[in-house]
Amino acid sequence: MAETRSVAEPYRDARQQRDAAMLGMYVFLGSEIMLFGGLFAVAAVMRLLHPAEVVEASKALHVWIGAVNTAVLLTSSLFVALAVDCAKGGRRRGTGAWLFSAASLGAVFLAIKVYEYSLEHAEGLLPGLGAPLKVSTPVQRAFMDLYLVATGLHALHLLIGILLLLVIAIRAASGRLLLPERAIVPVTAGLYWHLVDVIWVFLYPILYLAR
């Protein structure tokens, strides 16, 4: 019974502890969905009130950069899924390597995002920096405000995810994280990563592809 070692105080057995961790993470992710849900509601209302202007504003965004970034995130999710599979099989090196790759792709996403922001700044589309804006309608300005808040909040979540994956990658590779007994750690961190991916899956069509 290698598993009894990792059962903590309020739990009777490893199965109960694992179920509680999974349920807790799903509930937490539910609260994340509600957090971004408020922003999606704002986007819905904006489109309801000003359909034509929102489409115009959306066309000014860089569709292809967004598409590439979506692909980067989807691929990182694949890597996390593979890492979790390794962790469950007790393969320490594989876990570390896949998690590290996923975190690197997260960093690539952020780098592309920063490049995109700088393009938009040069085009006079990015609010909040004090520079004079070259927006054609007030609604475009409001749309870009929403774009900045939504993508910024998403980027912040991604940054947290990158740090999380890196820490777990190092702990897994170095053997400080017992695998497969404590596979729940990469599993729950992976859930978080996938959710950040899912949020982007919705942000991308709503912000970039409004036509």
Partner: peptide, 18 residues
């Protein structure tokens, strides 16, 4: 906070917000 700090006027009627 975004509106007060950075002028991101999502609820600002001037920008078509509500």
């Amino acid at each position: 906070a975004a509106e007060r700090l950075f002028g991101l006027g999502i609820f600002d009627p001037k920008l078509g917000g509500d």
